[in-house]
C-alpha cells in the first residue's frame, strides 16, 4: 500500500513538472512574440531597469540558450525582477500577495464546506419537503449568480443598507468575511447539491436500514453513517473547487481591494508586466497541481476501495 502510494505520488509529481514545463514554455514564447523581446517596453521604463533586465535575462544570447538559462533559473525558484515595480523581485511581490490570497482561499474553502455539506444533509433528510426545495433553489441560484455580481450586491447590502462589514481592505478578520463568503458561495451551492445526491444514494442502502432497525436516532444515522459514504463525490469535487477559488480570488481581490496575488496578477496583466504575470501563472499552476495531488491522496485514504492510479 505504502509503496504504491509513494509510486503514485512520484508519478503525479513528474506529471506536474511536465505541466509546469509546458506552461513555462508557452508563456516564454508568448513573451518573445512581442517585437524585439519583452524589453522593448513603453517609453517610461527607466534605463536602470532596462539594463538590469538585459543583464538578468542575457538578452544578447541566442534564443535556445536564453530559453535554457531562463528555464534553469526559474526551476531554482528565481522568477526575476519585476518590470513595473522597481527594486522588487517577482518573488518578493508574489510572496507578499500569497499570504493574503491563501488566507482568503482557506476561509472560502472552509466556508464552502461548512455551508454546503450541512445544507446538503438537511436537504436530503427532508427530501421533497419545503426545506429541500428552498435549499435546492438557493443552490441553483448560487451556481448561476457570478461571484462578482454577488460581491457587488453584498457591498450594497452589508456596507450601505446594514453597515456591518467594511467595504474592503486588508488587516482585520471583519474585512475577510465578505470576500470569502462571496468566493465560497458558488462552491457551497455545488457541494450542497453533490452532498444531497450522495446522501440520497447512501440512504437507500441496507446498512442504513440496519442502523435504523437497531434503533439509532436519525441524526446519528445521518451524521455518523450516511455522511461518510456521501462525502466521496464532494472530495473529488475539491480539485475543481480549488481551481475555481484561485480564479475567483482574481476578481474578488479586485473588488474588495485586497493586496493579494490575484490583484497583482491582474495589475501586471493590465500594465504588461511580463515577468510578474509569468511568475504568477507559474505559481498558480504549481498551487493547482499540489492541491489536486492532495485531493487525490485523500480520496484514496477515504475510500479503501479506490485503487491508486485509476
Amino acid at each position: 500500500m505504502l509503496r504504491t502510494l509513494t509510486w503514485f505520488v512520484v508519478q503525479r509529481v513528474l506529471w506536474s513538472c511536465a505541466t509546469l514545463w509546458l506552461v513555462f514554455t508557452a508563456t516564454f514564447f508568448l513573451m518573445r512574440l512581442v517585437p524585439g523581446g519583452p524589453f522593448q517596453l513603453d517609453r517610461n521604463v527607466s534605463p536602470e531597469i532596462r539594463r538590469n533586465l538585459i543583464a538578468r535575462f542575457r538578452m544578447d544570447l541566442p534564443l535556445p540558450q536564453q530559453y535554457w538559462e531562463h528555464l534553469f533559473r526559474t526551476a531554482r525558484g528565481d522568477l526575476g525582477p519585476s518590470f513595473t515595480i522597481a527594486d522588487y523581485s517577482v518573488n518578493e511581490i508574489l510572496g507578499q500577495g500569497f499570504v493574503v490570497s491563501s488566507a482568503l482561499g482557506v476561509f472560502a474553502l472552509l466556508g464552502a464546506l461548512g455551508l454546503g455539506v450541512p445544507a446538503g444533509v438537511l436537504s436530503a433528510a427532508y427530501r421533497g419537503r419545503s426545506v429541500d426545495r428552498w435549499v435546492m433553489l438557493l443552490a441553483t441560484l448560487g451556481i448561476a449568480v457570478p461571484n462578482f455580481v454577488l460581491a457587488s450586491l453584498c457591498i450594497l447590502v452589508f456596507v450601505f443598507v446594514v453597515p456591518v462589514f467594511p467595504a474592503g481592505g486588508w488587516g482585520t478578520w471583519r474585512q475577510l468575511v465578505l470576500p470569502s463568503a462571496c468566493l465560497a458561495a458558488p462552491f457551497a451551492a455545488y457541494i450542497a447539491r453533490l452532498t444531497r445526491t450522495g446522501m440520497l444514494e447512501v440512504l437507500g442502502q441496507d446498512y442504513i436500514r440496519l442502523a435504523r432497525a437497531k434503533g439509532l436516532r436519525s441524526s446519528a444515522i445521518l451524521v455518523r453513517h450516511a455522511l461518510r459514504g456521501a462525502m466521496l463525490p464532494v472530495v473529488s469535487y475539491l480539485g475543481p473547487t480549488t481551481a475555481g477559488i484561485l480564479t475567483g480570488s482574481l476578481v474578488l481581490e479586485k473588488v474588495f481591494a485586497l493586496p493579494g496575488m490575484g490583484s497583482h496578477f491582474v495589475d501586471a496583466a493590465l500594465q504588461r508586466d511580463f515577468t510578474l504575470a509569468m511568475g504568477a501563472v507559474l505559481v498558480y499552476t504549481l498551487l493547482l497541481s499540489v492541491m489536486m495531488l492532495i485531493v487525490d491522496i485523500s480520496y484514496v485514504l477515504l475510500d479503501p476501495r479506490v485503487k491508486i492510479g485509476e
Partner: peptide, 24 residues
C-alpha cells in the same frame, strides 16, 4: 489530461497581455 491540469484562465490572461501590446 495535461492540458486540463493547466489553469488556463491565467495563461489566457497572459496571452491577452502579450497580444494587447500596441505593436502586436
Amino acid at each position: 489530461d495535461v492540458l486540463s491540469s493547466i489553469p488556463f484562465i491565467f495563461v489566457v490572461i497572459f496571452a491577452i497581455t502579450v497580444l494587447g501590446k500596441e505593436e502586436i
